[in-house]
Design a protein around this nucleic acid. Structure first.
Lengths: 196, 196
DNA sequence: AAAATTGCTTAAAGTAGTTTAAGGCATCAT
DNA sequence: ATGATGCCTTAAACTACTTTAAGCAATTTT
C-alpha cells in the first residue's frame, strides 16, 4: 500500500480509526493523483466530481468576480480536505476554481464511491460529519472576524492560526483570503514593523 | 405526541426519514421548551449543553467585542438548528450568546443523548452530516460575499436569500449580521429608494 | 541568456464605511 | 398618562481601505 493511503488512514485515526475492511474499501475507492503547480482540479463551469484529500502540497479554492478578480475562499495543505461541497453533492456546475499552489499529491474519491462508503459503513458518515463540523467551526470563527475586526487584526490572527501556511503563501494570496488588496496588506505590514 | 415533535420528524423527511424506533428515541431524547422574547438559551462563559431545533419563533447568536458591541453570527427561525458547535462538542465555555428575538418554542437535546443517537443509529450521523454540510455551504457563500462584495450588495443578497427573516428583524440586527453600522445601512436603504 | 510574468512596495487621490451627535416616532414599563 | 427605551434617520467629520500608477527584485518561461 502506497504511503499516500497511509497518510489518509493515519488522518482517520484522529476521528474513529478504520478497521481492516474499511481500509481496503478506502484504498479501492480513492485514487492517487499528482498535480503540477498551477494545475487545476476544478474549474468554474465544471461539476466538482471529487472529494479531495491533500497528501502533500497546497491548493487554493477561489471565485472570480465580474472584474476578473480572484477571491480566495480557502486553502488546503497536507492532511486537509478540499472540494466544492455544493457542486459535489448537487452535481451542478461550480462557480469556483481549485488550483495547486505547489506541486501536490492528492487522493480523490468520486461522488458515487463516497455514497457507497456512506451507505455501507456507518463510520464514514460519522467521520465526515466530524470533519465538516470542525471546518464549520473554523469558518464561523473566520466569519465572526470578518464582521467584527479590522484588516490588521484579521491578518495577525491568520498568522497566528496558520503560521506554516503564512510562510508558504505569497502575500497576494493572503490578502485575497482576508478580503483586502495586496497594497493595503503591504501597508499593514509596514505598520507592524514600525510598531515592533 | 406533541406537534413540536411532529415538526422535527417532518424536518427529517427532507433528509433520510426516521422509522418508528428512531421516532420514539427522538421523542425520548429531545425536550420541548418555551422561551420568552429576550430569553437566553446560551450566555458567554457557559458551556453550550444543547443542540437546539427551532419549532417556532426566532433566535440570534452573537459575540460581544471589547467595545461591548454585538456581532450577529447567525439567525435561526422555524425548522432551523442553532448551537455553539465548538462549545457543545468540546464542553468548554462559549464565547457567544443565543437569544430569542421572538417568543419561541424549541426542542433541545443534550450532548450525551445526541452521542447516544449517533452511536445507535447510523441515520442520525447521516442526517446531521447532511444538515451541517448544508450550513457549511451557506456560510461559505456568506464568507465569499464578505470578502468580495460591498455592503449594499450583501444587503440586497440578504433580502433575496432570507426575505421572510428580513421582514421580521429590525434593521439594527441585519446591520450587525452584515458587519456594518445601522447608520450606514440606513444610508444604503436611502440610496436604494432613490434608485427605484 | 533574454524576455516575460509575478510579487512586493510606495505614494497620492478617491471611496466606502464609521463615529458622533442629534431628533423624531413608536413601543413598553411604571 | 409619563418617562424610558429601542429603532430609524440625517448629516458632518473622520478613518479604513481601494484605486491607480509606478518602480524594483525575483522567479518563471522561452
Amino acid at each position: 500500500m502506497s504511503t499516500s493511503f497511509n497518510a489518509l488512514i493515519e488522518h482517520f485515526k484522529n476521528y474513529f480509526p478504520l478497521d481492516e475492511k474499511e481500509r481496503v474499501e478506502l484504498s479501492e475507492r480513492f485514487n492517487e493523483r499528482k498535480i503540477k503547480r498551477r494545475g487545476f482540479i476544478l474549474q468554474q463551469g465544471d461539476v466538482c466530481r471529487h472529494f479531495t484529500f491533500v497528501v502533500s502540497g497546497c491548493f487554493k479554492m477561489y471565485a472570480v468576480d465580474q472584474a476578473s478578480k480572484e477571491h480566495n475562499l480557502q486553502f488546503a495543505a497536507e492532511n486537509d480536505w478540499i472540494t466544492d461541497l455544493s457542486s459535489f453533492y448537487s452535481e451542478k456546475p461550480s462557480g469556483a476554481y481549485i488550483e495547486a499552489i505547489e506541486p501536490s499529491v492528492i487522493l480523490q474519491i468520486k461522488h458515487a464511491d463516497l455514497l457507497h462508503l456512506y451507505i455501507r459503513y456507518h463510520k464514514f458518515d460519522r467521520n465526515f460529519r466530524i470533519i465538516i463540523e470542525q471546518k464549520y467551526i473554523e469558518l464561523q470563527n473566520r466569519m465572526l472576524q470578518s464582521i467584527s475586526s479590522t484588516a490588521e487584526e484579521r491578518y495577525l490572527s491568520f498568522l497566528e492560526q496558520y503560521p506554516k501556511l503564512a510562510n508558504r503563501l505569497p502575500n497576494t494570496q493572503i490578502a485575497s483570503y482576508l478580503g483586502i488588496t495586496p497594497e493595503f496588506l503591504s501597508n499593514i505590514r509596514k505598520g507592524l514593523i514600525k510598531k515592533s
